[in-house]
């Protein structure tokens, strides 16, 4: 069976990242795998207790931009396979927002592209976050920068 090079999915309902990886792994066995699971923070950008996170996106453009990026990676790297799932809608604190799983034949490639795809979902794709607390809502103005 041909290896599926990448799969991207917008999730409108809660998903179990471990179950998604398990299903995807059946046809995507390689030596190395890197996984990133992003969950909703419990605190909003101003330090208040978060009630829910709301994520909007531009249907059609979102899929196109992520798939274009994944397709470009597959042209450069033969032994590469990725699963990307991103939630939209209303999400509770600590629920998964994003799952990125990358399989490759070397750990360096798996780690590098897992990180790169995450930064693409943060800065290059039309998703927007709105934070809801007991006192109202506010749009997230700037994304967090990559730091250690």
């Amino acid at each position: 069976m041909d290896k599926i090079k990448y799969k991207f999915k917008i999730a409108t309902d809660p998903f179990d990242p471990y179950r998604e990886i398990e299903k995807w792994e059946i046809n995507n066995q390689m030596a190395a795998m890197s996984i990133f699971i992003g969950r909703v923070r419990e605190i909003d950008q101003f330090g208040s207790q978060l009630k829910q996170l709301e994520i909007h996106h531009y249907s059609g453009l979102t899929e196109k931009l992520i798939e274009k990026h994944l397709s470009e990676i597959t042209k450069k790297i033969e032994s590469f396979s990725a699963l990307v799932i991103h939630r939209v809608g209303f999400i509770d604190p600590l629920e998964p927002i994003v799952l990125i799983a990358v399989r490759a034949d070397k750990r360096g490639i798996a780690n590098q592209y897992c990180s790169e795809i995450l930064e693409v979902t943060k800065f290059k794709v039309p998703f927007w976050k709105k934070e809801w607390t007991d006192t109202g809502s506010s749009w997230v103005k700037n994304n967090t920068v990559l730091s250690t």
Partner: peptide
């Protein structure tokens, strides 16, 4: 034609 604010996903 779509006008969008800065992206904040991920």
């Amino acid at each position: 034609v779509a006008f969008m604010p800065i992206f904040t996903g991920g």
